[in-house]
């Protein structure tokens, strides 16, 4: 059973070399009259034979192993279609993973090439996504872009955004406000009062530490320390809620 498979592959490798030497493309072997866009996966015997010859460094062997595993690239790439990366880029990145897999595959290890290649392809795409996430920089909508002669700031939110964004921002602010009031309920009466006065949370204007200190009859330095402690505590409460 193994001999005919071996002979068939030897003939195919020979045909590939002859076609290339006369300038014909190997796709003619696979595509004529077929509905399949990609060459079929290798059978177990075919793969076994080719893997046996992989350490010899034969280019035609590597090419066949790569080409016959391209379906795996497409299948894995499609799992990442919802990441915002174009499918054309995903299959390109997956192909890099597959080329790396065939070049680094250790035939002595008892692992299937498809299993190893799947990991390499997936890993390649994940590394690319991670890199892209690192590059993406977070910018606040309230980032000032410029200041005019009167000192008015031009904010990023002034030049960006649509009505939809505005609605979304309002919803975000509403959620933040709800979380904040939830956390404020965990504070003591005095702590809550300090935060309301300092940051205008009860609808009044924001007050300075000095003003709050005068109003409550305690020193400004103590208000400053209390404020830091309260903000730290609020942060903990937020983390519990989110």
């Amino acid at each position: 059973m193994l001999i005919p498979v071996r002979m068939r592959l030897q003939v195919r490798l020979l045909v590939l070399r002859i076609l290339l030497s006369i300038g014909a493309y190997p796709e003619t072997i696979y595509y004529v009259g077929g509905s399949e866009a990609l060459p079929p996966p290798l059978s177990r015997e075919e793969e076994e034979y080719l893997l046996g010859r992989l350490p010899s460094g034969d280019e035609a062997v590597r090419a066949l192993l790569i080409e016959r595993n391209l379906r795996l690239v497409v299948y894995i790439a499609r799992k990442f279609e919802n990441t915002g990366i174009h499918i054309e880029d995903l299959v390109s990145i997956g192909t890099i993973g597959l080329i790396k897999a065939v070049n680094t595959f250790d035939t002595d290890k008892k692992i299937k090439l498809a299993t190893y290649a799947s990991r390499c392809i997936e890993n390649e795409i994940l590394m690319f996504l991670r890199r892209n996430n690192k590059i993406r920089v977070e910018v606040s909508f309230d980032e000032p872009l410029n200041v005019d002669w009167d000192g008015n700031e031009l904010l990023l939110s002034d030049v960006l955004g649509t009505d939809g964004d505005t609605i979304y921002r309002d919803i975000e602010e509403e959620v933040d406000r709800t979380l904040l009031y939830g956390a404020l309920d965990k504070l003591s009466e005095r702590e809550r009062r300090i935060m309301e006065l300092r940051f205008g949370l009860s609808g009044a204007k924001e007050m300075t530490q000095k003003d709050v200190a005068d109003l409550l009859g305690i020193s400004q330095s103590y208000i400053s320390r209390l404020e830091k402690k309260i903000i730290k505590r609020l942060r903990k409460e937020f983390n519990k809620m989110v």
């Binding site: 399949e36 866009a37 379906r71 497409v74 299948y75 498809a114």
Partner: peptide
């Protein structure tokens, strides 16, 4: 490499984890 290929639906290859 993939220009003519991406229009076709492709099933997972047999014998793979997928």
């Amino acid at each position: 490499l993939w220009l003519d290929i991406m229009r076709t639906d492709i099933d997972p290859p047999p014998g793979t984890p997928y």
